[in-house]
Design a protein around this nucleic acid. Structure first.
Length: 811
DNA sequence: AGCACGCCGACT
DNA sequence: GTCGGCGTGCTC
C-alpha cells in the first residue's frame, strides 16, 4: 500500500500541513507528487495537491481514508514548484494551498456546489411538495438552483434534510472549459480512399473533390477550416464520412490567442561588442549548470532584448527552457511580436488579458512541452517547466512584480529561489535597477554587466527640467510651462508626435506651496504628509504624526497652498482648449479596461492618427514610435511626494523610462520635465542620465533612515467595523511583536499603530503597524508565534489581519 | 473553511 | 419538553 501526502484546498492555518491518504491500487500508477486529486475531508470531497508519495504512514490505519480522484492526466506541479511553495509559505507567511493556487491557471481552481437529491423511498411520492417533486424529477439539484426556484423555502429545506427526506452532498468540479471542435480525420489508408474515389459516381463532384483532397492531405483538419478551404457544404463532408473515407470527432483544441496573427520571422541581429560580451557571460553561466545571477544594467535603447533573445536561443539549443518576465503594462503586442517572431510556436504567452480558457491552454502547452519559452507577467515565474535553464526578468525594478494579494510574493525573489532549486541562470535587466538589486551587485551576491551606450550610438535625449515655481512667478497658472507649450506648438507644425505623461498614482493628495515648492513633511520620517480632508489635518502615514491643515506656507508665508491630485482628464481638456484641432489619445485605466483597447490605441497612434499620446505611467514603457520627438512630463513631483520611502527611486525610474521614449530613431528627441522641486536629486540626476550617482546617494539615504535594502519591513494591516477595536488590536499586535522580537535581536523597530491611508474599506476601519529589522534575520517564526498568541482574540473580535512581507505599497 | 458536537435560553 | 443559538475542536 502506498500513501500520498496531500495539501488540501482549505486556506486555514489549522490545516496548513499535509494529510495522509491511502492510494487505491487502481490509481497507484497515476498518483505522483504534483498530482491534483480529490480527497474526502471531513464529510466533503475536496481538491488537494499531492506533495509526496510514500510507502508508509505514521497515521493510524483506521483513521486513513483513500483518495478518490486524480483530476488530470499529468501532475500539475513540478517537484521544484512543490518545493518552492515551502519557501514561499514560510517567507510570506501564508498557507501552502494559496501558493499552489497562485502557481496554476484559475481554470484549475475547484468549485464546490451543494447538491440535493430526494432520498429514494418508493411509495412516498404522496408526501411530495412542489419542491421535493421538482428535485425528484431532476434527480440532483444544486443549492443555487433550488434557491432560485423556491426562494422562501430555506427553512423547509433544512427540515427536509434533518428528516432524511432530502440528501445533501458537495460536488467538486473544476472551472476548466476545454474548447471542443469538430475535427475531420481522413482515413489513413490511401488504398481505401483510392477505392472510394473509384466507386464514387461521377456526378458526385464535391464528394470526389473531397476524397481527392484527403489523398493529398492526410492530416486531421478542423471541420470549419475545411469548409472554408474547399468552399464546401457540411453535408458533403458528412456523406464522405458515411462512405468510410473519414471520421468526424469532437476534439479538444488548444486555443491560440495569437492564431490569426502572422509574426514575421526575425533573425538574430549582430551584436555590438558590449552586447556580445554580456551574451558570452550568460552563455558561460548556462554551461556551468548552477545558479548564477546577473544584473544587466543597460540604458534605454541599449539592446537588452536582443541579448535576451540570443541567450534564450542558446538555452533552447541546450534542450533547456526559459522564462521571460515582463511587467504587465509592457506586455504589449510589440513585445510579444519580438519573441514570437524569433521563436514562433515555441513561445507561450501568459498575461491578464487572456480569457481563463486561453490562459489554461497556454499553460498546457508549457506543461506538455509543446512550448519551451514563456513570456509573461508576474505569475509566469511559476510556469510548469521541468528543464528550466534561464530566467529573464525585464524591467527588474518594476513594482508590478510584487503581488498585492495573498500570497504577497515578489516575482524577483521567487525567481531567485526557483533558480537556486533548478540550478538556473537569472538575468535581471533594467536601465534603472532597483536599489535592492544594485546593492546586491555592490556586495557581490550577483554579477553586474553594464551597457552604457545606445545601439547605433544614438545620443540619449536632451532633458529640460522646468521650474514650475518660476512659471507661477511669471504669471503662468496653466499646467503647461511656456517651454513645453512652445515645444508642443512646434511639433504640431512639423507634424511630429509627442507623448505626454502625468504620473497620477494612487489617490493620496499631498500638500505643497505653489510659491516656493515647500512640501509638508513629517519631522520624524522625512515622508510627505497626507491630507485628510474630512478632519482637516495632515498626517504621516508611517508614524502617525499629525498637524492641522496649513493656511499659510511655513516656509514663505504665502497662501498659495495647493492639494495636489490633477488627473489625465483635466490635461486632455486643457490640451483641446489650448491647441484647437489637436488630436489626443488618452490612455489610463479608464480607457484601457476593454480587451484589446491597449493595442487599439497604440496602433492608432503608430499610424499617426493622433498628435498626442497622453497617459499615466502605463505609457512610459516599451513604446517605440519613430515619429515621437517630444516627451513631456506634466508633474514630476507626484510620486516624490507620496508617503513612500521609495518616492525618489520611483521618480528617477519613471523619468528615465519616459525620456527613453523620445528620439529612438532618426529624429532627435527632446524631453521636458515640469517640477516644483527641480533641484531634487532624483529629478536633477535623472535629467542628466546619471544612474550611479543617484543610486549611491539614495543608498546613503536608505542606510541613514533604516530602510531597505539595509533593513527588512513587514507591514500588518488590521481591519474591523469599529475603528477603536481595529486600533486597539493593532496596538496589541505591535506590543506582542515587540516582546517577541526583543528576545531575538536588539536590531529592530516597531512602528505604529497608525490609520491606513485607506482608512476605511468595505465598511471596515483599517489600521496598520510595521516592523523593521536586520536583513539577515528571519522573523517568520516570530510573526507566526505572535499571530498564534492572538488567534483567539482575532476570532472572537472578528478582526482581520493581513501580513505583507517586503511591502511595496505601504498602505 | 465547513461541519459536528455540545451546552444554555425561548418557544410550541 | 424540544428547537436552535453559536462557542469549541477536528478534519488523514
Amino acid at each position: 500500500m502506498r500513501f500520498a501526502e496531500v495539501i488540501v484546498d482549505v486556506p486555514a492555518k489549522a490545516v496548513n500541513r499535509p494529510f495522509d491518504y491511502a492510494i487505491p491500487s487502481a490509481l497507484e500508477a497515476v498518483v505522483e507528487p504534483g498530482s491534483r486529486v480529490g480527497v474526502p475531508f471531513g464529510k466533503r470531497v475536496i481538491q488537494g495537491f499531492v506533495t509526496a508519495v510514500r510507502d508508509t504512514s505514521e497515521v493510524p490505519a483506521n483513521r486513513i481514508k483513500e483518495l478518490v480522484h486524480v483530476l488530470d492526466p499529468y501532475p500539475v506541479l513540478t517537484p521544484s514548484l512543490i518545493e518552492l511553495t515551502e519557501w514561499m509559505s514560510s517567507k510570506y507567511i501564508c498557507s501552502r494551498i494559496s501558493c499552489m493556487q497562485a502557481m496554476l491557471p484559475g481554470a484549475l481552481k475547484a468549485k464546490y456546489d451543494r447538491m440535493f437529491a430526494v432520498q429514494d423511498q418508493a411509495g412516498q411520492t404522496w408526501m411530495d411538495t412542489p419542491m421535493t417533486q421538482y428535485v425528484r424529477e431532476k434527480g440532483e439539484v444544486s443549492w443555487d438552483e433550488l434557491h432560485t426556484m423556491f426562494p422562501d423555502e430555506a427553512a423547509g429545506i433544512r427540515k427536509l434534510l434533518s428528516d432524511g427526506i432530502l440528501m445533501e452532498r458537495t460536488r467538486m468540479k473544476d472551472r476548466l472549459q476545454k474548447k471542443m471542435q469538430l475535427v475531420v480525420y481522413p482515413h489513413p489508408s490511401s488504398t481505401v480512399l483510392d477505392k472510394a474515389l473509384a466507386d464514387c459516381p461521377p456526378q458526385a463532384k464535391r464528394q470526389r473533390e473531397l476524397i481527392a483532397y484527403f489523398l493529398d492531405h492526410p492530416e486531421p483538419i478542423v471541420l470549419s477550416e475545411l469548409l472554408v478551404k474547399l468552399e464546401m457544404n457540411a453535408s458533403t463532408v458528412k456523406r464522405v464520412c458515411e462512405l468510410g473515407c473519414a471520421e468526424m470527432k469532437e476534439t479538444e483544441m488548444l486555443r491560440d490567442p495569437y492564431a490569426d496573427r502572422d509574426f514575421g520571422q526575425t533573425t538574430p541581429l549582430s551584436l555590438t561588442i558590449e552586447q556580445q560580451e554580456a551574451y558570452d557571460r550568460i552563455v558561460d553561466a548556462l554551461h556551468m549548470n548552477e545558479l548564477h545571477t546577473f544584473l544587466l544594467h543597460g540604458v534605454t535603447g541599449s539592446g537588452k532584448t536582443e541579448i535576451y533573445l540570443q541567450s534564450i536561443a542558446t538555452c533552447l539549443a541546450r534542450q533547456q527552457e526559459a522564462i521571460v518576465l515582463v511587467p504587465e503594462i509592457s506586455l504589449t503586442p510589440q513585445m510579444v511580436e519580438r519573441f514570437k517572431g524569433r521563436f514562433g510556436d515555441r513561445v507561450a504567452v501568459l498575461h491578464s488579458r487572456l480569457s481563463q480558457g486561453e490562459r489554461y491552454d497556454e499553460w498546457r502547452k508549457l506543461r506538455q512541452g509543446q512550448a519551451q519559452v514563456v513570456v509573461g507577467a508576474r505569475s509566469a515565474i511559476f510556469a510548469p517547466l521541468e528543464r528550466l535553464g534561464l530566467i529573464i526578468i525585464d524591467e527588474e525594478h518594476e513594482s508590478s512584480y510584487k503581488q498585492e494579494e495573498t500570497p504577497r510574493y515578489h516575482a524577483r525573489d521567487a525567481a531567485l529561489q526557483r533558480a537556486k532549486l533548478e540550478k538556473a541562470v537569472v538575468v535581471l535587466g533594467s536601465a534603472t535597477p532597483s536599489l535592492e538589486t544594485y546593492e546586491a551587485g555592490l556586495n557581490g551576491s550577483l554579477e553586474t554587466m553594464t551597457l552604457p551606450n545606445r545601439v547605433g550610438a544614438r545620443p540619449l535625449p536632451r532633458v529640460h527640467v522646468i521650474d514650475m515655481r518660476h512659471e507661477l512667478k511669471q504669471g503662468n497658472r496653466s499646467m503647461f510651462s511656456r517651454p513645453l507649450h512652445e515645444a508642443i506648438v512646434k511639433r504640431l507644425e512639423r507634424k511630429e508626435q509627442m507623448v505626454l505623461m502625468l504620473n497620477r498614482r494612487g489617490f493620496s493628495t499631498f500638500v505643497m506651496c505653489r510659491s516656493c515648492g515647500y512640501v509638508a513633511e513629517c519631522p520624524h520620517c522625512q515622508i510627505s504628509l497626507t491630507y485628510h480632508r474630512h478632519i482637516q489635518h495632515i498626517r504621516c502615514h508611517y508614524c502617525g504624526y499629525t498637524e492641522r491643515e496649513l493656511e499659510t506656507c511655513p516656509s514663505c508665508q504665502s497662501q498659495h497652498i495647493r492639494y495636489f491630485g490633477t488627473g489625465t482628464q483635466r490635461v486632455e481638456e486643457e490640451l483641446v482648449k489650448l491647441f484647437p484641432g489637436i488630436r489626443v489619445i488618452r490612455m489610463d485605466v479608464d480607457t484601457t479596461t476593454e480587451k484589446g483597447s491597449h493595442e487599439k490605441w497604440l496602433t492608432q497612434f503608430g499610424r499617426q492618427q493622433a498628435d498626442v499620446l497622453l497617459g499615466t505611467q502605463m505609457i512610459a514603457k516599451g513604446l517605440d514610435f519613430p515619429n515621437v520627438t517630444l516627451v513631456g512630463v506634466i508633474a514630476a513631483d507626484t510620486i516624490l511626494n507620496l508617503p513612500d520611502f521609495r518616492g525618489a527611486e520611483r521618480t528617477f525610474q519613471l523619468l528615465t523610462q519616459v525620456a527613453g521614449r523620445a528620439g529612438r530613431h532618426e529624429l532627435p528627441g527632446e524631453v521636458f520635465v515640469q517640477s516644483y522641486a527641480p533641484e531634487h536629486y532624483a529629478i536633477e540626476l535623472a535629467s542628466r542620465h546619471h544612474y550611479q550617482p543617484f543610486a549611491n546617494k539614495e543608498l546613503v539615504m536608505r542606510k541613514l533612515r533604516d530602510y531597505p535594502p539595509y533593513k527588512q519591513l513587514v507591514l500588518f494591516t488590521v481591519s474591523h467595523e469599529m475603528a477603536n477595536i481595529a486600533m486597539n488590536f493593532t496596538e496589541k499586535l505591535g506590543k506582542v511583536l515587540k516582546e517577541k522580537l526583543h528576545r531575538l535581536t536588539r536590531d529592530y523597530e516597531v512602528m505604529g499603530p497608525v490609520a491606513s491611508p485607506i482608512a476605511r474599506l468595505k465598511d471596515r476601519y483599517r489600521f496598520q503597524c510595521m516592523i523593521k529589522y536586520a536583513r539577515d534575520l528571519s522573523v517568520t517564526e516570530v510573526i507566526e508565534q505572535a499571530l498564534e498568541q492572538l488567534e483567539d482574540e482575532i476570532k472572537n473580535r472578528q478582526v482581520r489581519v493581513t501580513t505583507d512581507v517586503d511591502p511595496y505599497i505601504l498602505m
